[in-house]
Every structure is written in C-alpha cells, then in structure tokens.
C-alpha cells in the first residue's frame, strides 16, 4: 500500500452518469482497487482499476452519491490523494486456455485489465457485458480490442441480447474452462450458481479503511470470515456463501 498524490489527466463523461478518469502519479502498481480521498469527505472512495500502465491509472466510476458527484466535477490538472496497491485481484493463471469474463454495469471496468492480462498470456477471451440500456454501455470497443469475442446484453433489448448476462451466455454458448465475474451482487450470485466449473467473483462491500485493518467489510465465507478489501475483493466461487 502506498499513499501519494495523483494529477487528473482526464475526467470525462462516457455514459449516463458514468465517467472515465485518468490519473497520473507514482503509486504502487498491482492491487485490484485504489482508494481516493475526495476533498470535504471523511472516508475515501474505493474504485476498481480499469487500466494501469507506467504511472497512469484509468478508473471508470458512476455518480451514485455526493462524493462521486464532487469527483465528477473535478477539473483536469486537479490533485487527488490516492491509496494504491489495495486488494487481491483476479488470477489470470487460474484459467488454462479459455476464459469467460462476465461483467455487469460498473463491474465491467476491472475486467478490462484482466482481459488484457489473459490475452498477454495467449488465452482465449470471451467477454459478456450486461447493461440496463444502450446509453449505459461502457468500454465495448475497448473489450473488442482485447477479446476474441464480445457478447452484450441489455435489459431493455436496445443493444445485443435482451435480458441479463446469463441470457447472453445461454444464447452464445461460449466455451470456457474458467470464469471471472464482477457486477451487482445479485448478478454475481446468479452467475456463480448458473455457470458450470470453477470461477471467481469480485465482491462489493461498504468499506472503512480499504486496507484490511478495520474489519468493516467482513463477509462470511466457507473458510470463515474474510475481509473484502484485503483478502478479496476477488474470491473463488467455491468459497462464497450467497
């Protein structure tokens, strides 16, 4: 874990209430998420890392409350204090040959970095991305650039398969030996219960410290209590109790 100042290089609206923020700085690499201090707010905001290379962090976030609203109004050139190197992320090694990535809404961004890593290892990547409607779709082109196959579902049917990610999977029948999922808890529960074979899910929980010492985000697993921020946020399907 490292605490350092980052400069906002980009902060732009990419879909309904959804922003892409690029930060430049010298924190530590690795880790699944960063924890951003927002001026005027007591606790930091944990955001998953969508991309990370040479001092540039790409984050995608949605305005869901006052803190993220303030974040969305910050100008390029502004400074943010960021804790980097937090959390245990997806394990690309767990997949042998063919990976199935299942993302829903704001769970989609961290899967992009995973897709890149899987491709770098020469693995076949199928990404199934689910959204409510067309104007909430994010990162579709970015996924097409690093995946072998991209399936999209929307609840209103405006783009791709009408329904949920599971409907797109049933329709597309992608072959895989390991799956990775991130999205709303209810979606991940359905995905973990419906998909055959091993996989892992990136959980969401309201956090305190973000670094494993306040025990504010503990969940019960089949292996006992685990901290979402430190032992996770990614957990093996077999560990989880839904």
């Amino acid at each position: 874990m490292n605490k350092s100042l980052y400069t906002i290089a980009e902060n732009s609206l990419i879909a309904t209430k959804t922003y892409k923020m690029v930060l430049e700085g010298n924190g530590v690499e690795g880790g699944e998420f960063v924890d951003i201090g927002i001026p005027g707010y007591f606790l930091r905001r944990p955001l998953s890392v969508c991309d990370c290379e040479e001092g540039r962090l790409t984050l995608v976030y949605k305005v869901v409350g006052e803190g993220t609203k303030v974040l969305s109004e910050m100008a390029v050139g502004g400074k943010l204090e960021v804790l980097t190197g937090l959390g245990r992320g997806f394990d690309p090694e767990a997949c042998r040959e063919r990976a199935l990535l299942v993302g829903g809404g704001l769970g989609v961004p961290p899967l992009l970095l995973l897709a890149k890593r899987l491709k770098a290892q020469g693995k076949h990547v199928t990404a199934v991305l689910g959204f409510n409607k067309a104007d909430e779709i994010i990162l579709a082109d970015e996924f097409r650039a690093v995946s072998d196959e991209v399936l999209i579902s929307t609840v209103d049917g405006s783009v791709g398969e009408k329904g949920f990610v599971t409907d797109a999977i049933v329709a597309g029948k992608p072959a895989y030996d390991y799956f990775y999922t991130c999205g709303p808890m209810v979606m991940m529960k359905v995905v973990c219960n419906a998909l055959e074979g091993p996989g892992e899910a990136s959980l969401e929980e309201r956090m305190g410290c973000g670094a494993g010492f306040c025990y504010g985000c503990s969940i019960q697993t089949k292996n006992g209590p685990r901290r979402v921020c430190k032992d996770g946020p990614v957990f093996k399907k077999e560990e989880l109790i839904w």
């Binding site: 007591f42 606790l43 803190g67 929980e205 309201r206 305190g208 025990y215 504010g216 985000c217 503990s218």
Partner: peptide, 11 residues
C-alpha cells in the same frame, strides 16, 4: 464474526 454488513456509514 461481529455484526452484519454494512458496518460503516460516512458522516
């Protein structure tokens, strides 16, 4: 194990 989550609220 402690209490159920959410365990944290900002003020």
């Amino acid at each position: 194990y402690g209490n159920p989550t959410p365990r944290i609220a900002e003020c």
